[in-house]
C-alpha cells in the first residue's frame, strides 16, 4: 500500500467515528499534534497545582483545607492520566518533563497569574475549572482513544472542582461587606484571564483546520468561549456579583451574550513568558524535580536490592 492509501483508511476511520488506538497507523502530524496537546494538557494540570497549593496551609477551616487538598491531589492524578496517554504515542515521561523544564513545552497561561486572596480559590474553581471543563467535555469525544478515555475519567472528577469553587464564593457573597468585596475582587481579576484560556479568535488563525478534520478538536475557540460566557453570565447572578465587562449584554437575536474585547497584548505577553508568575512556576517545578532526584534513585536502588535478595533466597 502507498502512503495515500494509509491516510485514506485513517481518515475513513475518523469520519466513521472509529477511535484511533496506540498501535494503529497514523500520520506523523497526527501523532505530533496529539503528543503536543496531551503533554501540554498534562503540564497544565501539574503546574495548576501550584497556585492552589499556595493556600492549603492557610485555608480558613479544616473542611476547606480537606477540600482543597483533595482538589490538588486530583490535579496531580489528572496530570498522570494524561502523561500516560501521551506515552502511548511513543514519547517518554522524562522527555515531556525535560521539555516543560526547558520552556519548550507550554502549559495553560492561566496558571501564570497569582492567587492573592482566599477568594481566589473559589474563583479559580468556578471560572478557571469552569473554562477547562468546556474544553474537556468536548475532548471526551476526541479521536485518539487513550486521550478520550483519560478525559472521561477527568470530567467525572472535575465537576466537583467547579462546584466547590462556586459554593465557596457563595459563602463569601453572603458574608460580611469585606468578604463580599473580596469575592467581587477575585471575580474581577480572574474573569478576563479565564476568557483568554480559550485562545485567539478563530478569525485570527489562517491555517487549515486540521485538528477539526482529525476530530482531535470538535469545537472552535470562539464556540467554546461563547458557551462559557453564556454559562457564567447566568451563574454570576446567583452570587449577586457582577462580571467586569460593561459590554456584557444578552443578544436576543443571537440567543447568546455579547461581550467586550479581550486584551490580546496581555494574552500574548503571558504566552511568551512575561506573565506575573511564569518564572516562579517553572522554578518551582524544576526545584521539585531536582530535589526529588535522590528519592527516585533510592527507589530504584531499593527495588534492585530487593530483587537480588528474592533471587538468592
Amino acid at each position: 500500500m502507498v502512503m495515500q492509501d494509509f491516510e485514506k483508511i485513517f481518515q475513513g476511520h475518523i469520519d466513521q467515528e472509529i477511535k484511533i488506538e496506540p498501535r494503529d497507523w497514523m500520520p506523523d502530524a497526527y501523532r505530533k499534534t496529539n503528543v503536543r496537546q496531551i503533554s501540554q494538557h498534562a503540564h497544565s494540570e501539574i503546574v495548576g497545582m501550584l497556585p492552589e497549593g499556595n493556600w492549603i496551609s492557610r485555608a480558613p477551616s479544616l473542611k476547606r483545607k480537606a477540600i482543597l487538598l483533595a482538589k490538588v491531589q486530583d490535579e496531580a492524578g489528572h496530570g498522570l492520566y494524561l502523561y500516560s496517554a501521551a506515552e502511548t504515542l511513543g514519547t517518554t515521561r522524562d522527555q515531556m518533563i525535560a521539555d516543560l523544564h526547558s520552556g519548550k513545552a507550554k502549559y495553560s497561561s492561566i496558571f501564570n497569574y497569582p492567587t492573592l486572596t482566599w477568594a481566589d480559590m473559589g474563583a479559580v474553581g468556578w471560572l478557571v475549572d469552569g473554562a477547562a471543563i468546556m474544553n474537556q467535555v468536548m475532548l471526551c469525544r476526541t479521536s485518539y482513544g487513550p486521550y478520550a478515555r483519560a478525559m472521561v475519567r477527568i470530567c467525572k472528577e472535575e465537576s466537583f472542582h467547579q462546584r466547590q469553587g462556586f459554593e465557596s464564593l457563595m459563602v463569601l457573597s453572603q458574608g460580611t461587606p469585606e468578604q463580599r468585596e473580596m469575592c467581587q475582587d477575585a471575580i474581577n481579576r480572574w474573569w478576563w484571564p479565564s476568557l483568554m484560556m480559550f485562545g485567539p479568535k478563530d478569525s485570527e488563525s489562517t491555517n487549515s483546520d486540521q485538528s477539526m478534520k482529525w476530530k482531535i478538536k470538535r469545537k472552535t475557540n470562539d464556540e467554546l468561549r461563547q458557551n462559557f460566557v453564556d454559562m457564567i453570565a447566568e451563574q454570576v447572578k446567583v452570587l449577586g456579583m457582577t462580571l467586569p465587562d460593561a459590554d456584557l449584554k444578552w443578544n436576543e437575536e443571537r440567543q447568546h451574550y455579547d461581550f467586550g474585547e479581550i486584551n490580546w497584548d496581555e494574552f500574548w505577553n503571558v504566552v511568551k513568558g512575561n506573565g506575573p508568575c511564569n518564572k516562579q512556576r517553572l522554578d518551582a517545578r524544576r526545584k521539585a524535580h531536582e530535589d526529588g532526584a535522590w528519592v527516585r534513585e533510592a527507589a530504584v536502588a531499593y527495588a534492585e536490592k530487593k530483587k537480588l535478595k528474592e533471587k538468592t533466597a
Binding site: 517518554t92 526547558s102 519548550k104 475557540n221
Partner: peptide, 21 residues
C-alpha cells in the same frame, strides 16, 4: 499558526528536540 485552546503551537526556531532518558 492555528492555535486551539489547549494546543499552543511550537514557537518557530525553538530548541532542538533533545532525547532525555
Amino acid at each position: 499558526q492555528k492555535y486551539y485552546y489547549g494546543d499552543i503551537p511550537d514557537q518557530p526556531g525553538g530548541t532542538l528536540q533533545q532525547t532525555t532518558q
